[in-house]
Simulated assay, not measured.
Amino acid sequence: MSAVIETRGLRKEFVVRKRAGRFRRTRHAIAAVDGVDLRVEAGEMLGYIGPNGAGKSTTLKMLTGVLHPSGGDVRVCGFEPVPQRVRLARGIGVVFGQRSQLWWDLPLRESFDLLRHIYRVPPSEHAARLARCRSMLELDPFLDTPVRQLSLGQRMRGEITAALLHGPAVLFLDEPTIGLDVVSKQSVRAFLAEVGARGDTTVVLTTHDLADIQRLCERLVVIDHGRVVHDGTLAALHARYGSRRRVVADLDAPLDRPVAVPGADLESTEGGGARLTYALDQPPGALIAALAQTGVLRDVKIEEPDIEEVVARLYKDR
């Protein structure tokens, strides 16, 4: 296995007990992850999404050595996550949105210093990485504040910094922007985009905020009922479901005839406005030119297909 992350037939079952009479219970095995094959190369930024209960967090816990697989093969950074968990820990960083790796009563700066000793990071490397995070995530105003007094957005920026200070090859992020305000989300997204652009850290991101996926990830893996139902680009998912671009035009007068452009369909007209849909694989220039010929074109807006809409269609089909 040469990839940074590779799984073959990865499976995790949980046993649940159900009532089968007044005094008797029967045992049933439920597959939370059911035969996942996944290969992630170095430097990739992968979006790993699915509805609640699809198996996302269970997969991440097996990849990080928290849970033992019920079946299949898994390697992360060349290690088997559970038997070699200590060695693996030096090569990965983990951020779970609802759990903290920081010391609650210590200032953020001291948490970072303790992590340097735990991972045995040379002082010069630690200082360089911390300086980059301080600049990109704007940590300086609250570096000396105890973690328990930080806002959710400040703490999450601290968590991401803590996960990167030892220079991991893989960064696992589980709902890193959950509950954050708009400013904090923008800060975290910009930083993660910069991490991805550098190409020296593989990032696996699970989230329900599909704007994170659209902003950060070129590759998207969708899991549902424990199985992978899509592995490819977002564009491929749009093509699979026939997503269309929307063109909204503001005209001086209502359209008095159809717009004769292949691939364009009139969706609605109201007053001097027109809403048309257009195939994704065709540039909108011809449509805009045709609209301009029908009258005075005052304004035009192009709306890309909604990622939430197409992913919702995928979930419903399942």
Rank of each mutant, 00 (worst) to 15 (best):
A289Q: 11
F112A: 13
L164W: 02
V74D: 11
E41M: 11
V203C: 01
Q293V: 11
P122T: 08
P83G: 08
T161N: 07
L115N: 07
D299I: 01
V147I: 14
V66Q: 05
V94G: 04
L180F: 06
Q98W: 08
S70F: 00
R313P: 04
Y315F: 14
R99C: 06
L63H: 04
T59M: 07
R198Q: 15
H28L: 12
V311L: 08
T177R: 13
A236S: 08
L150S: 04
L234R: 09
V76H: 06
R116M: 12
A274G: 00
D181W: 07
D265W: 04
E44M: 02
D113Q: 15
H126C: 07
Q154M: 13
A253K: 01
R75D: 11
F172A: 10
E218N: 15
G35Q: 08
E309P: 00
A290H: 00
A31K: 13
L10V: 01
P258D: 09
A197M: 13
D113C: 11
L67R: 07
L164D: 09
L171G: 00
M62V: 08
R257K: 06
G285A: 12
L291V: 06
P69G: 04
F172K: 09
Q282L: 12
E304W: 02
G55Q: 02
D231E: 00
T233G: 03
T269M: 02
A236T: 03
H238L: 05
M62A: 09
I213N: 02
R257M: 10
L297R: 08
E80D: 14
H208C: 07
T201A: 04
P283M: 02
T59N: 02
E309W: 01
G167Y: 07
V204C: 04
F191L: 10
P258R: 02
R75F: 02
L314Q: 13
V95A: 10
A190P: 04
D34F: 01
L165I: 13
P305G: 00
T7Q: 10
G72S: 02
R116G: 15
A127D: 14
L46Y: 06
R116D: 14
P258K: 03
V94S: 03
V182K: 06
Q84C: 10
A89D: 09
L150Y: 10
I49M: 13
A32K: 03
L291K: 01
P107M: 09
H208N: 11
G196M: 06
R75L: 15
P141V: 13
R109Y: 03
L152S: 12
V94I: 14
R25V: 12
I213E: 04
R198D: 14
L130N: 12
T58G: 14
Q84N: 12
I118Y: 15
L152W: 09
R132T: 15
V228F: 03
L108F: 06
E304I: 00
G53S: 12
R19H: 09
V247N: 01
V40G: 01
P168Y: 04
G9R: 12
P107K: 12
